[in-house]
Write a protein that binds this DNA or RNA. Sequence first.
DNA 1: GAGCCTGTTATAAA
DNA 2: GTTTATAACAGGCT
Length: 269
Amino acid sequence: MPELPEVETIRLGLIAKIQNKTIVKAELFQEKSLIGNLDAVSLKTIKAIIRRGKYLLFDLDHLFMIFHLRMSGRIILTHHQAERSPYTKACFYLTEDLRLDFIDVRKFGRITISSTIDDLQKALGQEPVSDYFTLQSLLALQQKKGNRALKSFLLDQSLICGIGNIYADEICFEASLSPFMRVKEISEDKIEDLFFAIKHVLKKAIASHGTSLGHGLSNFKTPKGESGRNQEKLSVYAQEGMKCLRCSTKIQKVRFASRGTHFCPKCQG
DNA sequence: GAGCCTGTTATAAA
DNA sequence: GTTTATAACAGGCT
């Protein structure tokens, strides 16, 4: 599922190819996939592509086109005459024979067209992979939101944005912290471990072009239609019953905060 | 063929 | 005010 590293992989895959290209025509195949006026993007040029958390933002010069892929959304770059997937919700025809397809089997993804991104900026917390997110930022969040369980703290997009279920579990493992413990119970030394785990897990996943797991049509793909490689590097997520890489204890999976939660009961005790 | 899996939002409850 | 729980959305997959 597209979390920060997957959305960043999409952004990096698109930027060189479609920055400064112009949208010649847009087609919508499913009403509910769109919020706003699709006609407004016609003849607009893509000035920049930005990522905030799990959102991908196209800067169209005084207009924004915002994608959220939710569970199964894909953005694929192809050509004008290419055949469409039956799950295509919208197509954007660009100059130089390029076509951007928004494909979404499970229909939760959304394209929003809006003149401002103020609401989005207000709702989202800090960018974990940015240099503005420091150990001091994390300590401040611990002070303010320390009553939360670590996993729900990591998943809360209004605190730190972009972490989803897969990377939350991986971060807890890398920092040797229980996903169930209260954030305020974490020592300052361990908060430092957590800080570096957040940075490292996300950066490693970006370098591996994201995680492509499981179910065929909702499996993550890059804009070229390729799979990522990070699924080969997971320590706990989808590793139930496998041996812990540190202590060989069997990885457990339980339901927590209505999510599958994977952890080593010994070294994350 | 029922239940799983996932992100976000809304709503209710503690 | 804060945190947690649950349902809703949807459908391919097990």
